[in-house]
C-alpha cells in the first residue's frame, strides 16, 4: 500500500501526496499521485496506471471518500498517468477528466464517455474545485505534445507532471529533495531523453518563473521545495534536451 503525506493544508484546502509503495513490482515505474481537496470536493492529479489502482485507492480512501472525487487531472496521455480511469469512474460515474484537447479522443480508450472529458485548450484554463481556482499551465512537448501542469496559487504548488521527474534507485524514497546536486543526477537522463524540445523547455522555464512556487511536485521521484524549485528551473533551462545518441 502507498503512503499519504499531507504537503499543504489550510482549512479544508489540502494537498496530499500519495507515494512509495513498498510492494510495487520492480517492472512498474514508480509514480506519485496527488490529491487536492477543497470544500468537500477532491481532484486527483495523474491517478496512475490500472495495475497500481489498488495501492492508490486504499491510500486515498484513508484520507478521503473516493466517491467525493469530482475531477481527475491528466497531465498527458500515458498509461502510467491515467489507465486506471475506468476504475475511478466506478466510484463516481459523473467524474470529469481534464486533459489536453489533443488526447480527448485517445484517453477514452482507458474508459469514460463523451461526458467524462473536459478538453483543455493549448493556452490552458482555470479549473475550479469547489470555488478554488486551479490553473492548467501549458507544458507542451515536455514530454507529451499535449501536456499540462497544474498550479495552485493559494498553496503555491505546481504539479509538474514529468518535468522534474527522477528515477530514484531502490532505497532512495525521501518525499522531498534533500541534496539537489546528488538528486539531479537521477533526473538528468530522464529529462535529456523524454523532453522533446529546447524551445518548449525555454518557454516553460520563463512561464513558471513568473509563478510563485514553494513546491514543485513531479509525477516520479522527490518533490522540490523552497530554493530547490528555482534551482531546478535554472538547471532545466541549461540542459540540452531532445537529443538521442543513436
Amino acid at each position: 500500500m502507498k503512503t499519504t503525506r499531507t504537503i499543504f493544508q489550510q482549512g479544508n484546502h489540502k494537498w496530499v501526496a500519495i507515494v512509495r509503495d513498498p510492494k510495487r513490482p520492480g517492472y512498474l515505474v514508480d509514480t506519485n499521485e496527488y490529491l487536492v481537496t477543497h470544500g468537500g470536493e477532491g481532484m486527483l492529479l495523474d491517478p496512475g496506471g490500472s495495475e497500481i489502482f489498488p495501492a492508490v485507492f486504499s491510500a486515498l480512501s484513508a484520507e478521503f471518500d473516493p466517491s467525493a472525487l469530482t475531477a481527475i487531472f491528466a497531465s498527458h496521455q500515458d498509461p502510467d498517468i491515467c489507465s486506471s480511469l475506468a476504475l475511478w469512474l466506478e466510484f463516481n460515474p459523473g467524474l470529469r477528466c481534464y486533459v489536453s484537447w489533443l488526447w480527448e479522443s485517445f484517453i477514452p480508450h482507458f474508459g469514460g464517455n463523451a461526458q467524462t472529458f473536459v478538453a483543455l485548450p493549448d493556452a490552458g484554463q482555470e479549473i475550479p474545485l469547489a470555488g478554488l481556482p486551479l490553473q492548467a499551465v501549458p507544458a507542451h512537448y515536455l514530454h507529451s505534445s499535449g501536456n499540462f501542469n497544474l498550479y495552485d496559487k493559494t498553496a503555491k504548488i505546481l504539479f509538474s507532471g514529468d518535468i522534474g521527474a527522477a528515477l530514484l534507485p531502490p532505497g532512495e524514497d525521501r518525499l522531498y529533495v534533500e541534496d539537489f546536486a546528488s538528486h539531479i543526477g537521477h533526473a538528468e537522463g530522464f529529462h535529456r531523453r523524454w523532453m522533446g524540445s529546447n524551445e518548449a523547455k525555454r518557454r516553460w522555464c520563463e512561464r513558471v518563473s513568473r509563478l510563485e512556487i514553494e513546491q514543485l511536485c513531479p509525477q516520479h521521484g522527490a518533490i522540490y521545495r523552497g530554493a530547490d524549485v528555482q534551482r531546478f528551473i535554472n538547471w532545466f533551462d541549461e540542459l540540452p534536451v531532445g537529443i538521442v545518441n543513436d
Partner: peptide, 10 residues
C-alpha cells in the same frame, strides 16, 4: 481483480 485488491486493502 484490481477492485478486489483495493477492497482488501481498504
Amino acid at each position: 481483480r484490481l477492485l478486489r485488491e483495493a477492497a482488501e486493502l481498504a
